[in-house]
Amino acid sequence: MHSGHTAAFAAYERRLRPFAERNQALATRGDTAVTPTTREQLESRNALLRDPESIAKEMATASAQAGRTAHSGLLLPEYAGVL
């Protein structure tokens, strides 16, 4: 618990900054469905968008294969041990 909002916001920033930066870095590499950089990536992304049921599975598979765990790397203290 923090004594005031200034301290609380600073603590929040310290806790979440690394998580946010890891996730922001995922989008800047250009190899995601969000930011395709080649025609093949664009076509693959568009094909996924035509089949909504496969989007989540494809993105999760690609993230796991690339070793990207940043998107699920934050466990909030109040949920520790619950999940």
Results as ranks from 00 to 15, higher is better:
T61V: 12
R29N: 11
S63E: 07
L26V: 09
R50T: 05
R45L: 03
D31I: 04
E21G: 08
G30A: 10
T69F: 06
T28G: 01
T37Q: 03
Q65M: 14
P52R: 10
T37I: 08
T61F: 07
E43D: 07
T61L: 08
S54W: 15
T38I: 07
G67S: 05
N46A: 15
E53G: 06
S54L: 15
P52S: 08
R45S: 05
T69V: 10
A33Q: 04
T28E: 09
T28I: 04
A56Q: 02
I55W: 00
S44D: 14
A20C: 15
P52D: 02
L42R: 05
V34Y: 12
P36V: 02
A47H: 11
P36C: 00
T32H: 06
R29D: 14
T37L: 03
A20F: 13
T35E: 12
K57L: 06
S44C: 14
T32W: 02
E40Y: 00
S63V: 00
E53P: 07
N23C: 15
S63N: 13
D51A: 08
T28C: 07
L49W: 15
L42Q: 07
G67R: 05
T38Q: 08
S63G: 06
L48T: 01
A27C: 13
E21D: 14
Q24M: 15
L49D: 10
A66S: 12
V34K: 11
E21A: 09
E58M: 04
S44I: 14
R50S: 10
G67E: 00
N46C: 13
E58W: 01
E53L: 07
M59Y: 06
T35K: 10
R45C: 03
T35G: 09
T61M: 12
E40M: 05
T38D: 06
R68Q: 06
A60F: 04
T38P: 03
A33I: 04
R22H: 14
G30F: 09
A20H: 09
V34L: 11
L26H: 08
R29I: 07
T69P: 03
E53K: 05
A27E: 14
S44A: 14
D51L: 11
R29P: 06
R50K: 15
A60G: 02
E53T: 05
E58F: 02
A62T: 09
L49C: 09
T28K: 07
T61E: 13
G67Q: 02
G67P: 01
